[in-house]
Amino acid sequence: MTAATPLSPIPVAPVGLTARARRFVEVDGVRVPGQGFGQHRERWIKYGVPTVEIDRAATFQDRWGGLALPPAPFYEGGPRILGADCPEGSAAEGWLFPAGSCRVSMAYGFMIGSDGAFGINAHRWTPLHASTDGWVESLALAAHAGRWATTVTKVKGKAVESLDLADFEPVPEVQGVTDTWWRGRDSLIALYRGEAVGMDAPQCLEAHVYGGLDKWALRGG
């Protein structure tokens, strides 16, 4: 039997995250030691992968590689461990590279787009957040909201489109593209549209409404 991979001490959060996300990474995250990313470079170049794309994946690996975070509230928990792999090119989407292995068998993978967006690749490439920072901020916000909300309501399918966001403002730190967060007077709403868009499956639309939040909880704490 192969021994389990040891987990490292508390990780240091990458620079640029909000205080909330830094706490989330450093308190709830762990770093899993892995093999050096550079050992694959020459082999990938032989496969025809441009060096600029390998460099982009290496930058991601340096910032996020080996970081394991608690499961996301949607997308079957998100990547199990963040980590780059061999970039893949297509005429339609440009160059993408994997962002980490899935927790379960799924119909799509988590990828990083040519512009750095974090998203899913199913029937089509669907960016969820403008960067991996945004994805991690969304995880941190979901954990924070779930901890302090007095009610959590899940809205699914067509009912999501009837949510009234007129008195809500977008939460900028999550860098929402297909998925967004909205802040109201005493509530936060997370809109998960990625599966619906990426898999042509409107029944997969889902929103989580966190109610009963005070001013401190709404702004991040």
Rank of each mutant, 00 (worst) to 15 (best):
A3D: 14
L7M: 13
I10L: 10
I10V: 06
V12Q: 12
G16S: 08
T18G: 05
T18L: 06
R20L: 15
V25P: 01
D28A: 14
G29A: 10
Q39Y: 11
D55R: 11
W64A: 07
G65D: 05
L69K: 10
P70S: 10
P73L: 12
Y75K: 06
E93T: 14
E93D: 15
G94D: 09
P98S: 07
P98H: 09
A99N: 07
S101T: 10
M106L: 15
A107F: 07
A107E: 11
G109P: 06
F118T: 02
R124E: 11
S131I: 04
T132A: 08
T132R: 04
T132L: 07
S138P: 05
L141D: 02
H144V: 04
R147Q: 07
W148I: 00
T150W: 00
K158D: 12
E161I: 06
L163Q: 08
V171A: 02
V174M: 03
T178H: 01
T178P: 02
D179W: 00
T180C: 02
W182Q: 01
W182T: 00
R183T: 03
R185W: 00
L191A: 00
V197G: 01
M199V: 05
D200L: 11
L205P: 01
L205E: 04
L213V: 08
R219A: 11
G221D: 14
